[in-house]
């Protein structure tokens, strides 16, 4: 079982995570029917920017984050933003959004001018996460774990980051045992998805470049 300290850490992370919301004026634009390729590009860019802003707000609240060196804070966020966004998108596609919105967003992404070589693996990844039947607690903790990854480029004080990540990993591991007793491999599978996320991170720059060129 989770200790009382772990329980309160979990509730705190969940609460901060649930406050992460893209403003409605942006999501409303998604539902407007007519859109040119250029408007589509601008909307997806605006959503991504807003995504980063709410991610930073969530990150600021992670226990201990603000005690880290300022440049290390930026390096952590730069290193994890793409991965955290993919996780968040997976959650939105798999659960959070009303059904019609998800279809529209998928259509817009597929018509965005990005190559299918990038889009197909992305939707496959969303599907592979869906099969894990992750709870919102797991999404929130996994996102925090992703952000507080010590071995990102340019981190000077890896040890301090490790110290912040460890308790979150412990809670996540226990939670997996409690919520998926039928599947003892659940925690290992979640960590496996993190490796996949890293691949997306590496391809993201090329993807944006090809998108812009198109």
């Amino acid at each position: 079982d989770l200790t009382p300290e772990q329980q309160s850490l979990l509730h705190y992370i969940m609460d901060s995570y649930n406050r992460q919301c893209i403003p409605q004026y942006i999501t409303r634009k998604l539902l407007q029917e007519d859109f040119s390729a250029e408007e589509n590009f601008l909307l997806l860019t605006e959503m991504a920017t807003s995504h980063v802003q709410v991610l930073v707000e969530f990150t600021k609240k992670l226990p201990g984050f603000q005690t880290l060196d300022h440049e290390d804070q930026i390096a952590l966020l730069k290193g994890s933003a793409v991965e955290a966004m993919f996780l968040r998108s997976a959650e939105i596609f798999n659960r959070k959004m009303p059904h019609g919105h998800t279809d529209l967003l998928e259509e817009r992404i597929r018509n965005s001018g990005m190559s299918d070589d990038y889009i197909t693996p992305m939707f496959n990844f969303y599907k592979s996460l869906e099969e894990l039947k992750m709870t919102q607690e797991e999404y929130s903790l996994l996102t925090a774990v992703v952000i507080l990854t010590p071995d990102r480029q340019y981190i000077k004080d890896k040890e301090s980051v490790e110290k912040l990540q460890e308790p979150l990993l412990e809670v996540l591991q226990k939670l997996c045992q409690v919520q998926h007793p039928e599947n003892p491999q659940h925690f290992a599978r979640l960590l496996g998805r993190l490796t996949e996320l890293r691949t997306f991170n590496h391809h993201h720059a090329e993807m944006l470049m090809s998108w812009r060129v198109n």
């Binding site: 601008l42 860019t45 605006e46 920017t49 802003q53 930073v56 930026i74």
Partner: peptide, 21 residues
């Protein structure tokens, strides 16, 4: 507009809490 900013700019501004500037 925000769409012209790079990732690092967005992060720095959001960390400082002055994104609207």
């Amino acid at each position: 507009p925000a769409s012209n900013l790079g990732l690092e700019d967005i992060i720095r501004k959001a960390l400082m809490g002055n994104f609207d500037d």
